[in-house]
Amino acid sequence: MKKETQIVSLGRDKKWTKGVVNPPVFRASTMLFETMEEMRFASKNKTNGEMFYGRRGGPTHFAFQAAIAELEGGVGTALYPSGSAAISGCLLSFLKAGDHLLMVDNAYEPTRALCDGLLAGFGVETTYYDPLIGAGIKDLIQENTKVLFLESPGSVTMEIQDVPTLSQIAHDHNMIVMLDNTWASPINSRPFEMGVDISIQAATKYIVGHSDVMMGTATSNEKHWEQLRENSYLMGQCTSPDDVYLASRGLRTLSVRMNQHEKNALKVANWLATRPEVDHLRHPAFETCPGHEFFKRDFSASNGLFSFVLKEGNVKSVTALVENMHHFKMGFSWGGYESLILPVFGIEKLRTVTNWDSKKPLVRVHIGLENVDDLIADLEAGFERFNAAL
């Protein structure tokens, strides 16, 4: 099946939907058993879709998990109350004191904070690496290196990684490969075909699609699924069936929304490329984005999230650009139907092994589902304010 058909069809087995179109909200903490045999059967099959205890999930969860696992190409999906919880749940499920982690230098800021804080306190050493390091990653591998963590494209600066090469080298050294795959969503890349072991989604973003639910997913291959599932369960990771229902409903329109986000964003990006104030675009579909060649090879489409770098500017002028917008609003997320704009200051302080020219401000935008002409007019007025404040 094509992805558009899969999205509509997956997770709608009658054992979960009870014959209705959408899997209903099934709220439960305690499941009741009439006989010891029933309880023994549920206990024996508690990880195989049998109702056992609320934290293990119910039909609402099982339907959504099955859909995400199949879309991403894995064998099982664990659910978490946020994307950050999914990242920490995955890392804590496979790392212990004395282990070494290779973390991409342009990772999501809370991921870096997790490494430098909680993981360091637990005795896990982290080495950051250039997202464009490619085969050079082998020089950073130690005897105790257990996990290679990827984020492609990277947070804010949008570098695309050579995932197949990095995965192959990691597997040659018996390492686990984890990928924050949120930008691609479950439909615009095939992480397991590229060698990834665990693919992580902040479902808060494009899966939910309406900026009203926090959720994370981690989909694993067969080799690592049992350990991920059980350790996440032991850490108490679970999600509300009401939130899962909203994520499941959002999933059904994912391909339609992604197509429109991509179409709108490409129009806005092409317009930005003509602006004299813009140094270059950090949009994976454009040659000016580092790693663009890997985007062309490994992704089937882009979306609404990208950044652009200004030739010059300061806090005053960039503030003038982003304030008083009519359609773009500032906010620390993306993936919803609305357009967002976010100036990012101090990138150089969030990089360990890669450099960033702090004299050239970066602005990240998420292009929503509004009329593109309205969005461009909003940005044009913003540039007028920007130039007046220089």
Results as ranks from 00 to 15, higher is better:
L272K: 11
V278N: 08
G304Y: 03
G346L: 01
W271M: 02
T288Y: 14
Y337H: 09
T288R: 12
I347T: 00
F328H: 08
V344I: 01
M258P: 06
G336R: 01
E312Y: 08
N264C: 15
N303Y: 12
A265D: 07
S333N: 02
T319A: 09
D298I: 07
T288L: 09
S307C: 07
E277P: 02
L281W: 10
K329Y: 05
V309N: 12
G291R: 02
F308G: 13
R297P: 08
V318C: 06
K296R: 15
E262S: 13
W334S: 06
D279T: 14
S300M: 15
P343L: 07
V278A: 05
S302G: 14
H280D: 14
P284M: 08
N264Q: 04
C289T: 12
T288W: 14
N314L: 02
F295T: 04
G335R: 02
P343K: 06
S339V: 13
I347F: 04
K311V: 03
A285Y: 01
A301E: 10
F345A: 14
A273T: 10
R257Y: 04
G335Q: 03
W334K: 05
C289K: 11
V309T: 01
S307P: 00
K316M: 03
E293M: 06
P343D: 13
L281A: 10
N324E: 12
F308S: 11
F294Q: 07
D298P: 07
L281G: 13
F295G: 02
H326N: 10
Y337W: 07
H326P: 06
H326R: 15
K296V: 00
W334Y: 10
G291C: 01
N270C: 11
H292M: 02
L266A: 07
Q260N: 06
F345K: 10
A285W: 06
L305F: 05
A265V: 08
D279K: 05
R257F: 04
M258V: 05
L305W: 09
H280I: 11
G313N: 04
F294H: 05
G313C: 10
F306P: 09
L321K: 03
H283N: 15
F328M: 10
T319K: 07
T288V: 13
E262D: 11
F306V: 13
V315E: 03
